[in-house]
């Protein structure tokens, strides 16, 4: 509109598909009060949520996802924001129809994150979210490749979620075993009872998208953290079912990566969807789950 945005913003970007961002952020929401760290860079923005020493989740919004992405900072800005508040605020903008994009700016005069959407009929919805200086720097987890290709497999997201949901019954801790002969992935829960779910690898069936295992591994993870990796995936993403990739580091560090499409909402004037844009509209959500500390179990 008539707002002359000050040139001092580190980042000013325009987002078409607010719902996509809300869906992606919702995946990270495994509890009510969560502090997220947002890092801005020339490549896009990364939002990280961490349960110190147990679980970390991050979502990448590459700059290609935005209609405009104007980054001007010299040092990558990093700030803390309440994840729930960010989702609730963004949700306010999802009802808006039409072709106007959500404008996202940082920092405001008081280091706020500013969201603004101006409708065709001169109405404007805005939000100012207070940010804070992050007190911890999120740990940079890496899956060490141990000299070779790390053990990994990729399955349909819905199948993974279903298996993890079923494991709620035994609860407590879940063992994941990946074995090359016969090629299979086994989830085993021991708690109130035992439950074992096996994903046999079969080239002919489409359960697995990829399977990479040269020696057997077995690690145990706390159920509540494992569940957090799929619990909040919204139905719209599951329906898309792009697949989730699980990779294991040498020390048992588990990385769960979901690929999600952040498609722009088609307007009535836009009858086709440009496939060349498709690749740019993919965003990543990564979870790092640390294995349970070794105990004296036989």
């Amino acid at each position: 509109m008539d707002d002359d945005a000050p040139d001092s913003f580190d980042l000013r970007c325009l987002l078409d598909n607010v719902q996509g961002m809300v869906d992606a952020l919702t995946c990270l929401r495994w509890k009510k009060q969560q502090d997220a760290i947002c890092e801005l860079s020339d490549h896009g923005l990364v939002i990280t949520v961490e349960e110190r020493g147990c679980l970390q989740a991050r979502v990448y919004f590459r700059k290609e996802l935005f209609r405009e992405y104007d980054y001007q900072a010299e040092i990558r800005p990093k700030f803390g924001v309440s994840l729930g508040l960010l989702i609730d605020s963004l949700n306010t903008f999802t009802s808006s129809t039409g072709t106007t994009a959500l404008e996202l700016c940082y920092p405001g005069p008081d280091m706020q994150m500013i969201l603004k959407l101006v409708d065709a009929n001169d109405s404007c919805i805005y939000a100012e979210i207070r940010t804070r200086i992050p007190d911890i720097i999120p740990h940079d987890y890496v899956i060490e490749d141990d000299g070779g290709i790390p053990i990994s497999f990729a399955v349909k997201s819905a199948a993974l979620k279903e298996a993890l949901d079923d494991l709620e019954w035994p609860g407590s801790s879940i063992g994941i075993t990946v074995s090359p002969v016969p090629p299979a992935v086994t989830f085993r829960g021991e708690g109130h009872g035992d439950l074992q779910i096996e994903f046999p690898y079969d080239r002919q069936r489409d359960l697995f998208i990829a399977f990479n295992c040269h020696h057997e591994i077995s690690h145990r993870y706390k159920y509540k953290f494992l569940k957090a990796t799929t619990a909040q995936i919204p139905g719209s993403i599951l329906k898309d079912n792009r697949g989730s990739k699980l990779s294991f580091g040498a020390n048992g560090l588990l990385k769960v990566q979901h690929l999600i499409s952040v498609k722009p909402t088609l307007t009535p004037h836009q009858h086709f969807y440009d496939p060349s844009q498709a690749q740019a509209r993919v965003s990543y959500i990564e979870f790092y789950v640390l294995p349970e500390a070794e105990s004296d179990d036989p």
């Binding site: 508040l85 605020s89 404007c124 939000a127 100012e128 979210i129």
Partner: peptide
């Protein structure tokens, strides 16, 4: 404390006492 969220609707029909919108200067934000 952490967020303020709002909406501004402009140029709506006015009944009763009205003022000229041009008199409000060049304020940029709502």
């Amino acid at each position: 404390t952490m967020v303020s969220l709002g909406s501004e609707y402009r140029k709506l029909r006015v009944i009763g006492v009205r003022a000229d919108p041009t008199s409000m200067g060049s304020a940029s934000s709502s």
